[in-house]
Amino acid sequence: MIINLRVWLKIPDAEAATVKNTLLRRMGYQGIIRDVRRERLLSIESDDVSDPDSLIKQLTRELVNENKENFAVSVGSLELSNGCVPVKVSLWIEDGEAISIKDRLVKRLGLKMIRSVQRANIWKLYIDGDDPESVARRIAEELLVNPNKDRYEIIKLG
């Protein structure tokens, strides 16, 4: 099964604020971009376990810093709220940090059922206008992604 753990900051997200500021002040998106939010996504592939809830609890305890972060978990599908265009950005080159997270879970915490960990950023772009998806693609390619290491996809909302 795939456990999707979405994590976002409770405190102001300086990185999202910088992206919004750059789009508005430097890249000509005034009147187009209303807001930018960011989540990090960890997609954790695990063998089926008898008590998934307790595994999820263990994972969130280890991977979420509740002092500053909120989170949501879904198994299988990725559930995102409407109103924005979510752009998922991940590395296509080897992701050292994802490997470290997996090592930590398997070796230090003994969670032998974990098979892989994938990491991504989800940029939630709140866009005004007719064709938000093509605006989102433009923003991804102009700012959010360096194609020499990153890839992106626009997540379709259900």
Binding site: A14, E15, T18, V19, T22, R26, M27, L143, L144, N146, D150
Partner: peptide
């Protein structure tokens, strides 16, 4: 620059 936000160098690269 800009604390390597998004990725190192990219925000500064958009400055005038």
């Amino acid at each position: 620059s800009y604390q390597d936000r998004v990725r190192a160098g990219v925000i500064a690269s958009k400055e005038p």
